[in-house]
């Protein structure tokens, strides 16, 4: 096995370009170490922990910039994220154990592109963008177009995610992330539902965004339910209708964690709960 520990993004990308599919990037290692022990060993291991300038949480004027090597624990401990980006904070707070949160990075969670990835549905509802570098140069892509399938992203085999850019939600925005897992935060989600909602005045929905995790090949938005809510006053019947709509839009599969039918029930239930929480907190 070849091993590299590059100190610049350019070096890292040229190594990835050379080794392609045969290489693996390692940051926190919480996923890849398990793969290397029980599944496959890559021909080339690229440790990016020395790219220390990729670890930052930077509130710029236009958006919040988060470096790919920022740990989940750093997100959880950040006051701005806790207050303004509550949906993302919820996900970071419910992310496995302290041991894992100290090591796992936001970049790893995104680049891994698991449909159940904890921060992904919340980031979709924040309309975050991925910034990455390939041999062809730097790109900025909305996360919704970044995810291509389970474990597949626009990075391909040679791209390096350097960070994300998250627009500030409106001042009154309500963010909620709910997960259903058998063993609580330690477990992979059966279903996750994220909502980011802004209200006009007391209960008229200005904009609703609903993100679903683990119910399709990529994390997804429930666009139909979002449109249903747009401009309307929230009440219980409307919440019920939106929750049923989200369950219909979901594209779950049956696997050892849950059946597709069960996952749709959970989408409905969590969407109802998330919208109700957002509504009651207006």
């Amino acid at each position: 096995m070849e091993y590299f520990s590059p100190t610049s993004v350019e070096d890292a990308v040229s190594i990835l370009h050379k080794y392609g599919e045969r290489s693996r990037l390692i940051a926190g290692g919480t996923d890849l170490m398990v793969d290397m022990r029980f599944k496959d060993q890559p021909d080339c291991l690229v440790n990016i922990n020395r790219l220390s300038n990729l670890s930052f949480i930077k509130p710029d004027e236009d958006c919040l910039r988060i470096g790919a090597l920022t740990t989940i624990r750093e997100l959880e401990a950040n006051h701005l994220i806790k207050t303004r980006f509550r949906v993302l904070w919820n996900a970071a707070h419910q992310f496995a154990s302290l041991q894992i949160r100290n090591a796992a990075t936001i970049g790893g969670n995104i680049a891994r592109a698991s449909p159940a990835g904890e921060t992904l549905a919340p980031l979709l509802t924040l309309e975050a963008k991925a910034r990455f570098v390939t041999a062809d140069g730097e790109q900025l892509l909305p996360l919704e177009r970044f995810f291509l399938g389970p474990g597949r992203t626009a990075l391909g085999a040679g791209g390096l995610l350097t960070g994300i850019e998250v627009p500030y939600p409106d001042d009154g925005a309500r963010g909620v992330y709910l997960k259903h897992a058998v063993r609580g935060p330690m477990d992979i989600v059966v279903v996750g539902v994220a909502t980011t909602i802004t209200f006009d005045g007391r209960s008229a929905v200005n904009e609703a965004r609903i993100g679903l995790a683990a119910v399709g090949p990529t994390p997804m938005r429930a666009r139909g339910s979002e449109q249903l809510l747009q401009g309307k006053h929230l009440d219980l019947p409307l919440i019920e209708e939106a929750a049923r709509g989200a369950a219909e839009e979901a594209k779950p599969i049956s696997d050892h964690r849950a059946s597709a039918e069960y996952r749709r029930w959970i989408v409905e239930s969590l969407t109802r709960r998330a919208l109700t929480q957002a509504w009651q907190n207006v």
Binding site: I26, G28, G29, T30, M33, V34, N47, R73, A96, S97, L98, Q99, I100, N102, A103, M186
Partner: peptide
Amino acid sequence: GECGACTVYMNGKLVNSCVTL
């Protein structure tokens, strides 16, 4: 990385050494 039996501190931070390179 699920059971914590291998927990150590790396640079002062609690980590699972089984999933740390």
